[in-house]
Structure formats: C-alpha cells, structure tokens
Design a protein around this nucleic acid. Structure first.
Lengths: 142, 142
DNA sequence: GTAACTGCAAAACTTTTGCAACCAG
DNA sequence: CTGGTTGCAAAAGTTTTGCAGTTAC
C-alpha cells in the first residue's frame, strides 16, 4: 500500500504521451511538471537534475526535451538566437523576455488570438501553426 | 565627372553611422541596402558576397552584421533557435516565418503598437524595448 | 529476449575571439 | 604613420549523433 504512493506522478503522463517511462524521463518530468509553469533551458534543467542527484547526461536532457516537445508536453519559446527555451505551459499565451537577465515570464495579455489571425493575410497554400508575441524588456533608465 | 558616379551608395550611410567605410563594409552594405527590404543570415550574405566576387571572410560578415545592428542599420529578427536573422527594414513591423523553408516575410499587419503596449502590464522597473510578433507558417495540408 | 533508451564522446553548427597583417585617413 | 579593420584559424557555445551498453516490458 505504501509502495503505491511512490509511483511518480510523471509515469502516467509519459505513457499517455506514448513515451516509455524510463528513469531519466520520469525524473525530468518530475522536475518539469511537479509545480506549476516553468521556463527552462537544457542547461538549466541539467544543472537542476544534477543538483538533485538525478543520474542523467546533458545529451539525454536535450533529447528528452525534444521528445517532450514532439509529444506535446512542452512548447518551445524562441526569444534568443542561439539558445532554446522550453515552457511547460503548452496553452496559447505570450512572453516577456528580459534581455539583460535572459529570463522569461508569461504575459497576462488579453489579445484575442482569433482577431489577430484574421488581421493577417496568410500566403496562399500556407496555414498558421502559431502566433508568438514576445515583449522585450530592459531596466528602466532612472 | 564620370568618376564621381562610382562612389558607392553605401559610403555615406556608413559614415553617418560612424563606421569607417572599408572595402568589406561598403561591399556588404551595397548587397544589403541596394534594393528594398531584405532578410538575411550571416551565411546567406557570405554566400552572396562570395558569389559576386567580394573578398570577405565569414567572420567579418558576422562582425559586420553585428556592427550594423549596433549602429541601427539593421534589426535582428529572432524566429529560430540557433540561427540569427537580420532585417534591413528597421521600422516597427512583424514577420511570417515559414518553418519548413526557413524563410521570413514581412507581415502586412495593422496592429496598433501603442494599443498592444497598453494592454501589457510591464513589470516594475522595466520598460519595453520591442514587441515582436511572429506568425509561424507551414504548408496547408491538402 | 528484444526493442527502445541512455551515456559518453565525438561531431556538427553557429558565432566569437586573438593576433598578425593590412588599409583608410 | 597609426589606429581601426580584416582574415584566418582557433576557440567557444549549443545541440545532435553514433554506437556500445543498459533497461523496460
């Protein structure tokens, strides 16, 4: 009975996504999805995993993040050339990006996605996969 | 008289931007600004320069693009992790990004920038440097 | 048992940097 | 001349890949 409570929360989530719940994937899923929305990079998640004693390699973190993204568990946020960010919130929303600290925050923005899509004249034969809004920030000069 | 017409268009532009009009900068400026708005990467501009017989190294193309950006002659467009795009149109506007071909197009989008800025609750002590909208495209499935 | 997955190291790619040679003013 | 600029190669940073060994089922 006690043992059952040890089954990590992430296992079901992985199975549902069609991913075999291996040690590394379960551990990373726990880190990612345990509490609320998170914005991470491969490097930051790897550091976190190592700090918590999870045995995983950086290459596996990269691979796992891409697998999670392909499975729809994560969303990639493109805010900076040369670095990949991932967001555990896969619903439609937008981001602040602090250019000085490199940190990402969700925007509490009430833009009607449908309105925006209708304003745009999509090229023939193409369809929209996503509309991303990034509001770039820096310190207010005093 | 005839000789005067040979002075490349880019020289003045560079001087005004505080950049010494060297051979490579002038040649790259000609490629970039000669005809209308362009979206390029370091690699694509380097290939183009080499194809036209311009003597320049890839490192110099990278350095030059960053100098032009810092001088306000170019704007960086972040649409894909791991690759830097630049836009010769430095006015406020937004972009289509074709995820399959990697090509960028300007959007004919009539979003009131001020409206958007007012909708967003900017964190304390921060100010907005830019609002970027990227509409991601792929082929319509038939 | 076996196919899927991981770890490691190496490779691939993009971008930056150090420094001797070069060139614009 | 002289300092800013360039070219080259090397380094740095991020991400992917190949393959032998391991693991989930």
């Amino acid at each position: 009975m006690l043992e059952q409570n040890r089954v990590p929360y992430g296992v079901d989530k992985l199975r549902r996504a069609g991913l075999r719940p291996t040690q590394q994937r379960v551990a990373l899923a726990e880190l990612l999805f345990a509490d609320g929305d998170r914005h991470i990079t491969a490097e930051s998640l790897y550091d976190e995993a190592v700090a918590k004693g999870v045995k995983v390699s950086l290459a596996t973190v990269y691979n796992t993040l891409n697998q999670f993204k392909d499975a729809g568990l994560l969303r990639e946020v493109v805010v900076r050339a040369g670095k990949s960010y991932f967001d555990t919130n896969t619903t439609t929303h937008h981001h602040f990006f602090d250019e000085q600290t490199g940190s990402i925050e969700d925007i509490d923005l009430d833009v009607d996605e449908e309105d925006l899509r209708e304003l745009v004249k999509v090229p023939n034969g193409k369809c929209i996969t996503a509309v991303d809004i990034v509001v770039r920030l820096r310190d207010e000069r005093v």
